[in-house]
Design a protein around this nucleic acid. Structure first.
Lengths: 203, 203
DNA sequence: ATATTTGTTAACCATTTGGTTAAACTATTT
DNA sequence: AAATAGTTTAACCAAATGGTTAACAAATAT
């Protein structure tokens, strides 16, 4: 076997670590397994990332920085609340279909270690609710939408969009449908969710 | 130290295991930690439950059997859809406030091992959606509520009620509130969620 | 060309971990 | 009270695990 300076060994490790950590979580993942997945020696993981903890943090930050911009769609954007809800619901579901393990990974690891989110807050692209809050209050005042607090509306939007992915194994078995049927239901939700929310808040 | 046949050593182990498994998950939990929590020797865990896997399954089944009856409230009950939604949202949030780790535990472990739910399905109290489905279709036909499919409505109800607990570390930091304020917001949701849903589906 | 830095590996190491064992202790049966 | 069955413990064990080391190879600098 030849050895060559492979500029992206570091990247390959991160990609492999992403796959393993996102499916097995920090505790369930094994360094050896990540090395195998990357097709390299275990010592390389430590050479590039020092420890399991640091490698994990690199993966987590990476995952979070994918999710954050999605949230900003709904928060910092000049369209109306109604437009935002439609755009977000459709975009977000499409986005997660491309990264199915992402929401669960983030939620699971934040529950394991809630203090972890503070490391994310430093990031300048950390989602900020201020603008959304002002806008909701404003549209309520002007009588465009029914009275609702911005945090509650935000929680509702997130819940309806994210939960079906996070709880897929449970929901799918409760409503007793195949993978394909569940997939179809989720697909429908790209418009269904927005309609449901707007129905509820419109005057 | 005196030894006495303690009829509930087995129960104490289960209680300790519940606390540890529900906070750390299967992979993060350590048998020694469970033994310490129960105040007994590690060998006892194996004496009563054979292996970590079996102890875990006992805990999981126990947790699931707490949750299942809550779901049946909404599924097999003779009140109207509207009443069901109000009752469920209020009851369920109260219930989880008493068992805060439960939903996350179940969801996390089902994601780790989706095949696991089949072991639950055998249980006769496993929630069944048939009645709810009929009822929704019926009320839609009669024009009591807007057109919506039962699975979508069910997913919406579950999402709005469960997600705020599962994603607490994330949501709380996004809307930037203290523990007490978040707690207050969740409390409000006992009625807020039901109103939100009913607003959306009522004619 | 040669020295030096960077990348890579196999072998190794200390600790942790789930699980076992054999003996002791307690309760129950005879 | 002696035998038996059930409960508990300390000590032990093998495998797994995160991490290190020393030697070697490739690329880069001198």
């Amino acid at each position: 076997m030849k050895k060559k300076k492979d500029e992206n060994t570091e990247v390959q490790i991160l990609e492999a670590a992403k796959r393993i950590f996102q499916t097995k979580g920090m505790d369930g993942a094994r360094m050896q397994e990540i090395a195998n997945e990357a097709g390299i020696n275990k010592a390389m993981l430590h050479y590039y990332y020092r420890s399991k903890q640091l490698l994990f943090e690199a993966v987590f930050k990476n995952a979070f920085s994918l999710l954050a911009p999605q949230l900003n769609t709904i928060l910092n954007d000049d369209s109306s609340i109604e437009e935002k809800i439609r755009k977000f619901s459709s975009n977000y579901i499409s986005f997660i279909e491309k990264h199915p393990y992402l929401p669960n990974f983030i939620i699971q690891e934040l529950n394991r270690n809630p203090g972890f989110i503070f490391k994310m807050e430093e990031n300048k692209s950390f989602p900020n609710l201020e603008k959304f809050k002002k806008q909701v209050d404003d549209e309520v005042d002007k009588g465009f939408i029914k009275k609702i607090s911005a945090p509650q509306l935000f929680i509702n939007i997130m819940s309806l969009n994210v939960f079906p992915f996070v709880a897929k194994p449970l929901l799918q078995n409760l409503i007793k449908v195949s993978d394909e049927e569940y997939q179809k239901i989720v697909e429908e939700r790209k418009t269904e969710v927005a309609n449901f929310i707007i129905n509820s808040i419109k005057i």
